[in-house]
Structures are given as structure tokens and as C-alpha cells.
Amino acid sequence: MLHQFRALAAAAAIAVVSLPLAACSDESKLTIHSASGDHTFNIEVVDTAASRAQGLMYRQELADDAGMLFDFLGEQEVSFWMRNTFIPLDMLFITADGVVKNIHVNARPHDPTGIPSDGPVQFVLEIPGGRSVELGIEAGDTVTHPRITAAE
């Protein structure tokens, strides 16, 4: 009985110590590692059906170092459109382990045409249109963020 109590107390202590560490993970920063260097973006994370559906619709501007990370909570094929979106966007389709699978550059505002991933992805990062080209970001580059488990 005493052994079980000590094990439970130790587990509780570990949980309490881990809480501050979890709270320290900053989901508002994302870094893309490319041949041209590391590029950090200030992002919003959306991970519910409603928040993903809203996305960046109706926004009138997006800073050069800003973006939105769509987390689908598991890999799947996805498709985006630009209906009700007022600014051109680059869409980076990212696997669960943080590899950029494909990029759609300069999606046209208000275009209802589907923009598909090139196979299953867990994340899509939207950044200002043309930024991926300006920064030299390409398919195969890697992304770090607290939600992404890096490829080993």
C-alpha cells in the first residue's frame, strides 16, 4: 500500500512539474528551415472545423511575417479555396512530421477553385502571397512548431 502511495505521489509530482513546461510552448511562432535560412512567422493556429472554415476569410491584410496554421489533427488529403478571401496567399501543405509537401503560390482572392494538397498532410500554413518565393521556401523544407513532431 505504501509503495502504491509513493508511486502515485511521484507521478503527481512529475505532472505538476511538467505543467509549467507545457504552458511555455509558444504556439504563436513557427519556423521554416530552408536552404536560404530560417524564416520565423507569427501565426494563429486553427484546429476546429469552424475555425478552419473561417480561416483568413474577410481579412484585409496580413503582415509579411504573419500566417495561419491549419491543424487537421491527423494526416489527410485536403483542399482549400479562396472564397471570401481578400488577400493573395501562399499555401504550404505540411506533413505531420514537418516536411513541406507542396506549395501553392499566390492563390487568387475570391477564387472558388479548389487548391489540393499533393497527398495526405496534417498542416497547411497560409502566408502572404509570394512570400515563399521571396524567401526561397520550397517543397522538402522543414517546419518546426510545438504541434509538429519532427522527422527523425
Rank of each mutant, 00 (worst) to 15 (best):
G136Q: 12
G129R: 14
T144L: 00
P128I: 07
G130P: 13
V121E: 13
V124F: 00
T113M: 07
F123G: 14
G140P: 10
P109N: 02
L135G: 04
I137Y: 09
D111E: 03
P120Y: 08
R131I: 11
V143M: 04
V124W: 00
D141M: 02
V124I: 02
P109M: 03
G140I: 06
D111Q: 02
I103Q: 02
E134H: 14
G119A: 03
H110T: 08
G114K: 15
F123D: 11
L125S: 01
H110Y: 14
V143Y: 06
G130R: 06
V124G: 01
A139I: 06
G136N: 08
D141N: 09
S132Y: 12
G140A: 07
Q122H: 01
P109Y: 03
I127F: 02
L125F: 01
A107M: 06
V124A: 04
R108T: 15
R131W: 04
G130V: 07
R108C: 15
P116V: 07
I127M: 03
N102H: 03
T142P: 10
I137D: 12
D141S: 06
E134W: 06
L125P: 01
P120W: 09
A139K: 07
P120E: 12
T142A: 08
V143A: 05
R131M: 12
S117D: 07
T142H: 11
V121W: 11
H110D: 11
P120C: 08
R131S: 11
N106P: 07
A107H: 06
L125Q: 00
E138P: 05
R108K: 15
D141G: 04
N106A: 12
D141P: 07
G114R: 15
H104K: 15
A139M: 08
L135W: 08
G114Q: 15
G114E: 15
I137E: 10
G140D: 05
T113D: 15
G140L: 06
P128C: 02
H145W: 01
V121Y: 09
I127E: 01
Q122P: 00
E134F: 12
V143Q: 04
E138H: 08
A139C: 11
L125G: 02
E126I: 00
T113P: 07
R108Q: 15
T113C: 11
S132N: 13
I127G: 05
T142V: 13
E134C: 10
N106Y: 07
L125Y: 01
G136S: 05
V121M: 12
G114Y: 14
V124P: 00
N106W: 02
P112R: 03
V105E: 11
I127W: 04
V133C: 10
G140Y: 06
T142I: 08
P116Y: 06
R131C: 08
D141L: 04
I103W: 04
I103N: 05
E138D: 13
G119M: 04
G140F: 03
N106M: 09
H145D: 05
E134M: 13
P112L: 10
P112A: 08
V133M: 09
N102S: 10
F123Q: 13
L135I: 03
P120I: 10
A107F: 04
E126T: 01
D111P: 02
I115D: 13
I137G: 12
I127V: 10
I115F: 12
P128K: 05
H104W: 13
D111K: 04
P128G: 05
E134T: 14
T144H: 00
T144Y: 00
E138R: 06
L135M: 10
I103P: 03
P120G: 10
V143K: 05
P128N: 12
T144E: 03
P116A: 07
